[in-house]
Design a protein around this nucleic acid. Sequence first.
DNA 1: AATGAATGAGTATTCATTCAT
DNA 2: GATGAATGAATACTCATTCAT
Lengths: 181, 181, 181, 181
Amino acid sequence: MAFGTSRFAEQGYHPTSVSEIVTGLGVGKGVFYWYFDSKEQLFLEILRDAQTDLRRRQQQAIAEEDDPIRRIELGLRASLAWAEEHRDHNRLIQFAATEATFVGALRRGQDIAVADVVRHVKEAIAQGRIRDDADPDLLAHAMVGVAGHLTRTFIYERGEAAGGVADSVVAFCLRGILGDP
Amino acid sequence: MAFGTSRFAEQGYHPTSVSEIVTGLGVGKGVFYWYFDSKEQLFLEILRDAQTDLRRRQQQAIAEEDDPIRRIELGLRASLAWAEEHRDHNRLIQFAATEATFVGALRRGQDIAVADVVRHVKEAIAQGRIRDDADPDLLAHAMVGVAGHLTRTFIYERGEAAGGVADSVVAFCLRGILGDP
Amino acid sequence: MAFGTSRFAEQGYHPTSVSEIVTGLGVGKGVFYWYFDSKEQLFLEILRDAQTDLRRRQQQAIAEEDDPIRRIELGLRASLAWAEEHRDHNRLIQFAATEATFVGALRRGQDIAVADVVRHVKEAIAQGRIRDDADPDLLAHAMVGVAGHLTRTFIYERGEAAGGVADSVVAFCLRGILGDP
Amino acid sequence: MAFGTSRFAEQGYHPTSVSEIVTGLGVGKGVFYWYFDSKEQLFLEILRDAQTDLRRRQQQAIAEEDDPIRRIELGLRASLAWAEEHRDHNRLIQFAATEATFVGALRRGQDIAVADVVRHVKEAIAQGRIRDDADPDLLAHAMVGVAGHLTRTFIYERGEAAGGVADSVVAFCLRGILGDP
DNA sequence: AATGAATGAGTATTCATTCAT
DNA sequence: GATGAATGAATACTCATTCAT
């Protein structure tokens, strides 16, 4: 799975052949099909694991925090930290979103992740810290968009450190949900 | 190109065969290769056209506006309007970002688009309307991230109207660049 | 026909497309099929013309000569001279011998050419100048083989002048039919 | 390789498709590409093997013989015997000479074969048995030409036995190199 | 006479998958 | 558990040929 992840991320899912994977691993084709039903299933499994892992990371980060705003911040920071370490998985997630075969599998995981944020936003609204005319769902997605795009641009493309980028992401997002221009 | 765009968007670039395209069009395989050197070139041509068209739309939207903040807003609204009408092209752009063969072609167009926004942000900073410790580049990308993600989620997935989503995008982004939490 | 000949000779019959021929000539595909029924027919026509032309050259060379041995010599020299000027046609003849579609068309012309030489040999045998236990047909083909191979090796590959090579061909062949080791 | 040889020889290299070869063999298309990189490579491999085999046959034939003239004779006889048994390979060699892609591969083998004969001729000249004004290279090629052409005409086309044709080839060639008309 | 867009059968080649060993 | 030879449907692409203009 690790090797497949790196090949898929580097060249794309379709341009990577099962042959290439097993050859690169120095094993026969048989073992591939012993462990996976198909190339598609390998991809799906990688995808599931990645989403599970990211989720765990986010949960751990906010576990001890009661303040919803702080939980949002910690969640964002955890996401960026994870993204920095899982460049390849992140690329695969991005690709999965572009192909009919995989969107379904992707959706569930992303829905769960967003639902978390939505919960925090709602709590903050209840506490009167975010305007109550705001749509929690929209705010959550906006923050996901900021985090994702800045990760790809500044961490992946420009090689900046996740910590610094996270500061900016948090700043922008908190202003976005709390600010009053 | 129109038909290819829709097939590519629906099933993905690789799962769509040249055969399928020409059959769906009711023409022979030869015509395809009369007009395009390869399947790859067709994709590249679609990509280029899409980026050119979006750019034109943005330029037209801000042509008469002097205020940089208003230009940012109009640019965002124009992007969402275009995205609503060019769902398929947008998906192709997303896919292009995931495959080595196409990233190069994509980059240039996106760099130009972001450069525009950066210019407006800098102008607003010069006017003292945005804190001068902000990184214009980062702010620009953050807004691109918000617009892109909310478009995909609310316009494409949930079928909401571009106008309403644009209001939210603008609100979030302006708070993000101007707000003081 | 001239252009086709050169392309066929340079790259081979199959690797040369009709498209390449008409493009190289700056004309449309229509004209090609106005003058020739097919690519195959063009080749056949080139082949026929080449054989006719070679034959004419040989006939002219021996027209005024009565001595059969001298006629053989003059015929050989004429063949080499023609071959020097018609490198491309010669290559096509060689190719034609390797493909089922063309062997038939080739045979006739070659039979005629050999028959000429056979006639001279028989005459020389009748005059008692060549041993009467010799097979005229075999002697004729042997000489054709010498002429053909030395042409390809020394004139085509090594770029030597036809005149000098012809001297050697004649010397070897005359010893071959007359000599007594 | 055996089946490919016969198809190539019968219809020509280009008119023979990989499809036809694997179908005729009752195997899947994949096996072909498991053993050969391409159709071209199959041809090249056949060519190389044929040349190697012919060479070995010639070497064996002359191994125990000291007299250079006798070595020439034995070499010619070995060549004709081989040619009788390898009709198809011989045709392929002939075709290879007409296409740019293959001439290179052909040349080396033929150069080696001729170099052998040249060596014998030179030795015979040194022994004073062949006129010392003769060009060994030319004599060698002349003999190759005789052997090749008579093989094709009398063995392949007319179905005569290699033994009888070899007698004629040897007689003609020895007169050609030794005779004094 | 000539053009060149259009056809579609045909080509070499790839690759996910199977299965006897 | 593991191998890798074998399968064959599928792919991108070519090209001789046609025909409306």
